[in-house]
């Protein structure tokens, strides 16, 4: 694991953040610092924890399959930046 390894541009694309060149440069430096700090974890011996983390819970908080009221289309769309004919409108999705 190399703290210098982060490719900010690639990761920003994955996260759908369009960064300016300046931002990429700033984040590259700051995140490299932070990842350098985080590298301290590599020296922690975690061999004893493997077994514990996968224990099964003691209860299942499941919901009974009963109807609850929905909201109206008007309420659903009240915050929509763009809407038309009861639909949320986005630029045409390309396949």
């Amino acid at each position: 694991m190399s703290s210098q390894g982060i490719d900010v541009q690639y990761v920003a694309d994955l996260a759908r953040l369009r960064l300016s060149a300046d931002e990429v440069a700033t984040f590259q430096k700051q995140l490299s610092d932070i990842l350098g700090y985080v590298d301290q974890l590599q020296k922690v011996d975690v061999s004893s924890v493997e077994a514990i983390t996968a224990s099964a819970p003691t209860s299942n908080n499941l919901r009974t399959d009963e109807l609850k009221p929905s909201i109206s289309a008007e309420e659903a769309l009240a915050n929509a930046p763009v809407q038309s004919d009861n639909l949320f409108i986005v630029p045409r999705m390309v396949e």
């Binding site: 109807l67 609850k68 004919d85």
Partner: peptide
């Protein structure tokens, strides 16, 4: 099922757009 996976909205085919939502 009667309802959706993670909320109580009806699990039903069709309907006016955005009426089976919460």
């Amino acid at each position: 099922t009667n309802t959706k996976m993670f909320c109580g909205c009806i699990n039903k085919y069709g309907g006016l757009p955005n009426t089976h939502v919460c």
